[in-house]
Design a protein around this nucleic acid. Structure first.
Lengths: 238, 238
DNA sequence: AGCTCTTGGACTAAAAACAGTCCTTTAGAA
DNA sequence: TTCTAAAGGACTGTTTTTAGTCCAAGAGCT
């Protein structure tokens, strides 16, 4: 959409990869931490397994882990039953202050506005196993009891959990990726006192709707829920 | 969603990259050709520019181009005003016959069922420039006059054009990628006599709805339109 | 105390990918 | 005809990434 607006659709001629393996690995790990996929004090898989999962050599993975370690995100214990742990100390945001770009903000909000409500509706329609139901409820209760510090990763985890219930791998990937981009944007604006109570009411309502198979409500409340973050971000575009 | 269904959300611990740069570049170029982004006899950007766009070194790009060249997809002319051209001879599908996997099929259809209708609705709501309107109409007329051989790439091009109108880069990327996955699936089933007339009616209806700003109709017809391909593919799942 | 097994730590040689430079071709302009 | 500039073609040296191997730590078991 940028330079030569139409014609040979240049929007598809984008970079095939996001950077070198080292950078991508750091980025990816940082995302999983910030998204709360691995909660503080939780242990990461062993290096050999993690390297294989990420499709990267162990040497490269170790470079990335080392970087994250001396940036304070990870702690390492050697020996049997040792491993790499997510730092329990609150991960301090380095107050990144690149300015918000309108196009980037709108793109993220728009895409999110499509896939998250769809994920909620689909999950409500899906046949949920007992384990799935329990997983959702656990994510919800962890989120409900979150403090302003722990809120964001648990929020991400909850919304990703919803996508997981839908049973679509693509959807999970899209939601997780979009959340990560959203978090990057949120990192660039001052932290305001979010209305946690209101958000939690909506979260509960969404979870209930999904569990009782009410797709319409699940979708509607999700849309409403997203509007909060959307107007917050748009407010800083000025 | 695969091994350890929930808990530390392993769905996000996926490979950070799809393969080595060489393979990814081939894959990507092949997609743009199969999607009809570059129509037969059309000229690709010069190697230096293309390499930069794809975020890959010229050496790697050239390896990939060479491979595609002696696979018959590309033709090269040296000298000033020369360049790399998409073979005008119909690209013969090598009749790939890996079997369809139910999970893959359902995942693609489901994700597509989310983003394409959303793209149509958004485009209908968007303020379209004259160039944008014309681009859509041109893609439509090219599609309408397509033969069974040229139908699929033009179809992809039309649907990607719709995503482009929405103005969201993420959406364009998602639609293009999903179309490519869909084409891979379609390559694995025998070509049937598609009901081109019916599809073309729907295409025209979608385009009209978008141009007159009727989001509801654009979305509804898109959903109906997708059902054709969906049931075709599902029919081969046995 | 000693053993054992899982895990992080360190090194090497080979392969992949890169940036940079120069050569060759060739249509059109001078 | 000659020159020029834009394109593909080819080579070189460097950096990144990899696979593979071995070492070191250390919790828990015998």
């Amino acid at each position: 959409m940028q330079d030569s607006p139409f014609g040979p659709s240049y929007s598809v001629l984008r970079p095939v990869r996001g950077g070198n393996a080292f950078e991508e690995t750091i980025e990816h790990l940082l995302q999983t931490i910030k998204l709360g996929i691995f909660a503080p004090s939780e242990k990461l898989p062993p290096e050999r397994e993690l390297a294989e999962r990420l499709g990267v050599s162990r040497a490269t993975l170790r470079d990335a882990l080392g970087e994250l370690q001396n940036a304070g995100y990870l702690e390492v214990q050697r020996g049997r039953y040792g491993g790499t742990y997510v730092s329990s100390s609150a991960v301090q945001r380095p107050t990144e202050s690149r300015p918000l770009e309108r196009a980037e903000v709108e793109d993220v909000l728009l895409f999110r506005g499509i896939i998250e409500p769809a994920a909620a509706a689909l999950s409500a329609k899906a046949a949920l196993t007992a384990a799935a139901r329990q997983h959702l409820q656990q994510c919800l209760s962890e989120l409900t009891s979150a403090t302003p510090e722990t809120y964001r990763p648990r929020d991400a985890r909850f919304h990703i959990a919803i996508a997981e219930l839908s049973g679509s791998a693509s959807l999970v990937g899209a939601v997780a990726e979009t959340r990560a981009r959203l978090n990057d944007l949120l990192d660039r604006i001052p932290r305001l006192g979010t209305n946690l109570e209101h958000a939690n009411e909506q979260h509960a309502e969404i979870a209930e709707a999904i569990l009782r198979g009410d797709a319409v409500t699940a979708e509607r409340v999700t849309v409403e829920h997203l509007e909060g973050t959307a107007s917050l971000l748009r407010g800083f575009l000025a």
